[in-house]
Design a protein around this nucleic acid. Structure first.
Lengths: 252, 252
DNA sequence: AACAAACCAGAGCACTGCTCTTGCTTTGCC
DNA sequence: GGCAAAGCAAGAGCAGTGCTCTGGTTTGTT
């Protein structure tokens, strides 16, 4: 249950493993190769035109195959999107985990800020992929269980910072937590290994949704006519907001 | 510039005005009537199947007209969505403004919390409409200027609470604001009539994105396996989070 | 009464996701 | 090596979409 407590998860299940589970036959090798090509060009189309107008036929056309051939490799459009979702979560997760590793373990505020900026940076670089995973889910689409692992990489990083912080300087005055709220967060408390008091856990979750709320607002245009458009201004504003969030976390 | 400073905007531009601008001829009357029918059934389809699968043909079918006839009343699918967006903003705005009027003007914390719960309540009651306005915008879609008025009703309510609060009990220690950040928020400062110090304004914006971040996370399933599913638990959790946000605002 | 603007119905184009059938190639097994 | 089974590509086809164009009708105005 506490598998993640190490400062940063060492696993890099983003990369396709090189030689394990050798695809013996030539056909199998071609299969994974073509599947990867499909995913790659699909990701290209997604980045260019957005998820809503991602077309299996267009992907097939780009690959020089007829549309029906796609269905040998991908059961349907939704599962293609699911694969892209998993890739997106892993791409974001890898970025976030990477920048966290460059800092001293006890530089909690810096680790938090660097995490926030990594999320924002990835979102600005991959807006359509961000929208795919943190925007409104396509109607009738229920996230399959394969996504929850990749999806929890960022929350895990945030939790790890909190746990590291809490382990080293205990005190900090805490806000009372209603019993109903306490039972509501049983799942995440278990996930965190019970290493955090409820109050701090809840602050962490507020920081979590505050972070993605800020990124989403910027990306979806809700800061139009509110915060100046330039990247300099936007970044400074975001930094300030995240420092505020960090203060609510007991950092800084 | 300070047109909104009154506790709650008195205008109710949600309702269609009854007798003004009389649609003299029978044809004109039929026109607005049919347009309204189109909007109504479109809203029904939206609520049921989501924005992505909203079909002009299906709407036409429901109204017993042939698909091409729709284009007499609506230029295209995007502008139908835009009309629904405006309606959604106004519906949410009206709800939020309404609940705020039931409270004493100096009950700042209560006004804030009631606003938050009104947003969440509306979102849970109209998930697809919420996704339409606060989810990922459809690709290639640029919000037309007609939406910015309705869209600013909720922010206006939040700002009004802050202004009322700041006018009556000044002090509160403030956090320093970098000059770059200060220039970044020139637009919103002007919009707020310059009645708030930058620090408080920034806290308000953090509360704003924190509120919608929390609602979006709940609605889009990011609390799955994190916060217990039941409405009781979810509401208690949300309430706690918003109280935390309020504390960051200097309330409570 | 005459005329132009607004309307409706239908056919049609180009596109989508997805299925099914027809042949062909590769694979694993005896 | 032979051979059935499985995997594959290609094409036709179905039902649906947004949107346009044409012809014919209704309506409001002069």
């Amino acid at each position: 249950m506490l598998w993640f407590v190490a400062t940063a998860p060492e696993m890099e299940h983003t990369q396709r493993m090189p030689a394990s589970n050798a695809p013996s036959t030539a056909r199998e090798r071609a299969r994974v190769e073509i599947t990867q090509e499909i995913l790659d060009t699909a990701r290209g189309h997604l980045a260019k035109d957005g998820a809503a107008s991602l077309s299996l036929r267009a992907v097939a056309r780009d690959l020089g195959m007829v549309s029906s051939a796609i269905y040998r490799y991908v059961p349907n459009r939704d599962s293609l999107l699911t694969m892209l979702i998993i890739e997106a979560y892993n791409s974001l997760g890898a970025d976030v985990e990477k920048v966290g590793r460059t800092l001293r373990r006890d530089a909690y505020l810096e680790r938090f800020l660097v995490t926030c900026h990594a999320v924002r940076g990835w979102a600005l670089a991959h807006p359509q992929e961000y929208a795919l995973i943190y925007g409104s889910p396509v109607p009738g689409y229920a996230a399959p269980t394969d996504t929850i692992g990749p999806a929890s990489r960022v929350p895990t990083v945030l939790l790890t910072i909190l746990i590291d912080m809490h382990r080293n300087d205990r005190p900090k005055k805490s806000m009372p937590v209603e019993p109903l709220v306490s039972t509501a967060i049983a799942d995440i408390r278990k996930f965190s290994g019970g290493l955090l008091p409820d109050d701090l856990l809840l602050r962490g979750m507020a920081a979590w949704s505050g972070l993605f709320g800020a990124v989403s607002f910027e990306l979806y245009g809700h800061l139009h006519n509110v915060v100046a458009e330039g990247p300099k201004h936007r970044k400074a504003y975001f930094d300030h907001q995240m420092r505020q969030v960090a203060a609510g976390l007991g950092l800084g």
